[in-house]
C-alpha cells in the first residue's frame, strides 16, 4: 500500500554565521534523494543572524527552510537544539534526515535519533535508495562494504563526513524556496551551561587542501618509526595523515586521521606507509590522483588499491628513501 512519503531533511550546521561545506554537500545529495522519492527537500538551520543564508540554500536545492534565528542559538547547545529539532520532526515526519559528521553533528544526530526512537548509521561513504525505496547506508567494514537500512522507523538517519558528496552544481533553480521561522524557546536554566568556545589554528600543513599527503599506519612500529614518517612528510612538503592505530598509540592527533571516521581527502599524490589498506582508511583517500603504498607484507590489501606498490619494512626503508630524497634535492639546488 502506498503511503505518503515525508520530506528529505538536512541539518544545516553553521559556524560563525557561515554554512559548513559539508551541509551544502548534503543539500546536494538530499536534493537527489528527494527527487528520486518524489518528495520535497527541507533543511533546518539554527544560529544567530543566519536568516540571510536562506538564499544560498534555496539555490542549492532546498524547497523549505526552517530557521531558528536567535542569539541563544549562536553556538550548538544540545539542550537548546535537540528539542527544537525533535519537535519539528514529530510534526513534519521526515523520511530521511542527513547530518554532517562534525563534532556537533555527531552528538546532535544520535540525540535526535534516540528521542525519535529511530536508527542512525555513522559516517556513511555512500547513500542510495534500494528496491524498496529504503535508504541504503553504505559503510566500510570487515574488508568490504556493508549496507545498513532502517526498515520500520522514521526518519532514516545518517551522518556523512565532508568530502563524501560533491557540492550542489550551479543552480538550475531560482531561489524560490519557502522560509519558515521557528519559535525559539525561552532560555531556561539548563543542566549544562556553555562557558566558552575556543577556536584553534591547526598546526602543520592541513590535510584538506594538501597536494601531497604522506599517511602512516601501524607498520611504523613505534614512536621512533613514526618520527621517520614525519621526516618523510617534511622532506616532501606533504601534509601528514594517519590510520587509526597511530592515533590510538598517541603518535599523532585525531584530526590527522584519514578515512571513514576521519577526513576525506583528495591530494594529487599519496604515499601510504606501513598501512595495510583497511577500507575504513582507504575510503578517505580513494579520490587521490596517484597512490603509492609501502608495506612489508606483499599480501597486504593495500596493494590492490594503489597505483604503485613497494614491499619493504618501513623502519629499514624510510631512512634510505629520505637520504635519496635529500640527495635529489641537493642535486637540483646544485644544478
Amino acid at each position: 500500500m502506498a503511503r505518503e512519503i515525508g520530506p528529505v531533511w538536512v541539518f544545516v550546521e553553521q559556524c560563525g554565521g557561515n554554512v559548513l561545506p559539508v551541509s551544502y554537500e548534503l543539500v546536494g545529495k538530499g536534493r537527489e534523494l528527494a527527487d528520486e522519492l518524489g518528495t520535497s527537500l527541507e533543511a533546518v538551520l539554527l544560529g544567530d543572524s543566519v536568516t540571510g543564508l536562506a538564499g544560498e540554500l534555496f539555490r542549492g536545492g532546498v524547497d523549505r527552510l526552517y530557521v531558528g534565528d536567535d542569539v541563544l542559538l549562536k553556538y550548538y547547545q544540545p539542550e537548546m537544539y535537540v528539542p527544537m529539532i525533535v519537535d519539528l520532526a514529530r510534526e513534519r515526519k521526515p523520511e530521511i534526515f542527513l547530518v554532517g559528521s562534525t563534532a556537533c553533528g555527531k552528538e546532535l544526530a544520535p540525540l535526535v535519533a534516540a528521542r525519535l526512537k529511530t536508527g542512525i548509521s555513522a559516517h556513511c561513504i555512500d547513500l542510495a535508495l534500494d528496491g524498496n525505496r529504503l535508504l541504503e547506508q553504505i559503510i566500510p567494514a570487515y574488508g568490504g562494504l556493508i549496507s545498513i537500512v532502517c526498515p520500520e522507523m522514521r526518519p532514516q538517519m545518517a551522518t556523512i563526513a565532508k568530502g563524501v558528496f560533491a557540492l550542489p552544481g550551479p543552480a538550475g533553480r531560482h531561489g524560490t524556496g519557502e522560509l519558515v521561522e521557528l519559535a525559539v524557546p525561552q532560555a531556561e536554566p539548563m543542566k549544562t551551561e556553555l562557558l566558552e568556545v575556543v577556536y584553534e589554528e591547526a598546526a602543520g600543513l592541513t590535510l584538506d587542501s594538501a597536494a601531497t599527503i604522506v599517511a602512516g599506519g601501524a607498520g611504523a612500529k613505534d614512536a621512533a618509526g613514526w618520527r621517520m614518517v614525519e621526516v618523510l612528510a617534511d622532506e616532501l612538503g606533504a601534509a601528514l595523515g594517519a590510520t587509526r592505530p597511530p592515533v590510538d598509540e598517541g603518535w599523532i592527533e585525531l584530526d590527522r586521521m584519514i578515512g571513514q571516521s576521519g577526513k576525506m581527502v583528495t591530494p594529487d599524490f599519496y604515499i601510504g606507509v606501513g598501512l595495510s589498506g583497511e577500507l575504513q582508511h582507504m575510503v578517505g583517500i580513494v579520490g587521490a590522483k596517484l597512490m603509492v603504498a609501502i608495506n612489508n607484507d606483499p599480501k597486504a590489501p593495500v596493494f590492490d588499491q594503489v597505483d604503485y606498490g613497494l614491499v619493504d619494512d618501513c623502519q629499514e626503508f624510510l631512512p634510505v628513501l629520505i637520504a635519496k630524497i635529500r640527495q635529489f634535492k641537493q642535486g637540483k639546488t646544485a644544478a
Binding site: 536508527g119 568490504g144 562494504l145 556493508i146 549496507s147 545498513i148 526498515p151
Partner: peptide, 10 residues
C-alpha cells in the same frame, strides 16, 4: 531499528 541488509567486497 537498523539492520545490515547486505555485504559486498569493494
Amino acid at each position: 531499528p537498523t539492520i545490515i541488509s547486505g555485504m559486498r567486497v569493494a
